[in-house]
C-alpha cells in the first residue's frame, strides 16, 4: 500500500517535471526540471526493486548526460533565444493530435489490462521473484549474471556504438581549418590530385 501511494506521488511529479521541461522559455530551467524528472523516474525504479538500474539512472542519466548538456548550453548565448518565438505554427493541431493519441493509448491499455474484452496480461515468470533474487545475492548479482550470460554480445555491440558516437561527435565539433566550409579544390569530374585528397581527409 505504501508503495502504491509513493508510486502515485512520484508519477505525478515525473509528469509535472516533464510538462515543465517542455514549457520553459529558459533552457537552463528546462534542463533542471529534466534532471528532476529523471530523479523521479529513478525513484520509480527503486520502487520496482530495480536498484542497479535506479543507480545507473541517477549516475549516468541525471549525472553524466545532463552535465554534458549543461556544458554545451553554457557555450551558447542563452539570452538571445528567449526573445524569439518559442513554438511552431502547427502547435495547436500538434497538441490536439497528441492528446488524441494519448487517449487512444489509455483506451487500448485499459482494454488490454482489464481483461474485459477477451485479453488479459499474463505474467510469464522467469524465475526471479523478489525472494529468489534475495536468496541469489541481491539485485546486482542477478542483474550482472543475466547481463553477462544472456546479453554478452549486445553488451559488446553497445560499447562499439559508444565508440563510434564518440568519434563522430569529435569530428563534428572539430573546427575546420579554412573558414566555414571545406572548399573544393578540383574540378567536378576530374580526379583530385593525391596531395589534395590527403589534405581533405
Amino acid at each position: 500500500m505504501v508503495e502504491k501511494i509513493l508510486f502515485i506521488i512520484f508519477a505525478v511529479l515525473t509528469v509535472a517535471g516533464a510538462i515543465g521541461t517542455i514549457t520553459r522559455k529558459n533552457m537552463i530551467h528546462g534542463l533542471l526540471l529534466l534532471v528532476f524528472t529523471f530523479l523521479n523516474v529513478a525513484a520509480i525504479f527503486f520502487l520496482t526493486q530495480a536498484y542497479f538500474v535506479a543507480m545507473i539512472q541517477i549516475l549516468v542519466y541525471a549525472g553524466a548526460i545532463m552535465v554534458l548538456f549543461v556544458f554545451v548550453l553554457m557555450f551558447l548565448n542563452l539570452r538571445s533565444f528567449q526573445q524569439e518565438k518559442q513554438t511552431h505554427r502547427q502547435r495547436w493541431i500538434a497538441l490536439v493530435l497528441s492528446v488524441l493519441v494519448l487517449v487512444e493509448f489509455v483506451a487500448v491499455l485499459y482494454g488490454v489490462t482489464k481483461a474485459k474484452y477477451g485479453f488479459s496480461l499474463a505474467s510469464v515468470q522467469g524465475g526471479y521473484s523478489p525472494d529468489q533474487i534475495a536468496a541469489a545475492g541481491g539485485n546486482n548479482q542477478v542483474f550482472a549474471k543475466a547481463l553477462f550470460n544472456d546479453m554478452l554480445l549486445p553488451f559488446e555491440v553497445a560499447s562499439v556504438v559508444l565508440l563510434v558516437a564518440m568519434v563522430g561527435a569529435i569530428i563534428m565539433v572539430k573546427k575546420e581549418k579554412h573558414g566555414q566550409m571545406a572548399t573544393r579544390q578540383w574540378e567536378p569530374g576530374a580526379e583530385p590530385a593525391l596531395d589534395v585528397a590527403e589534405e581533405e581527409v
Binding site: 542497479f52 548526460i65 526471479y128 543475466a146 544472456d150 553497445a158 556504438v161 563522430g168 565539433v173
Partner: peptide, 26 residues
C-alpha cells in the same frame, strides 16, 4: 514478468541515449 531481461535492456537504452546525446549536441 519477474525476468531480468527488461532491466538489462534499460542499460542498452541508456547507452544509446548517451550516444544520441553526444552526437546530437555535436
Amino acid at each position: 514478468h519477474q525476468n531480468m531481461t527488461g532491466q538489462n535492456f534499460v542499460l542498452f537504452t541508456m547507452a544509446i541515449a548517451a550516444a544520441e546525446a553526444a552526437v546530437g549536441l555535436a
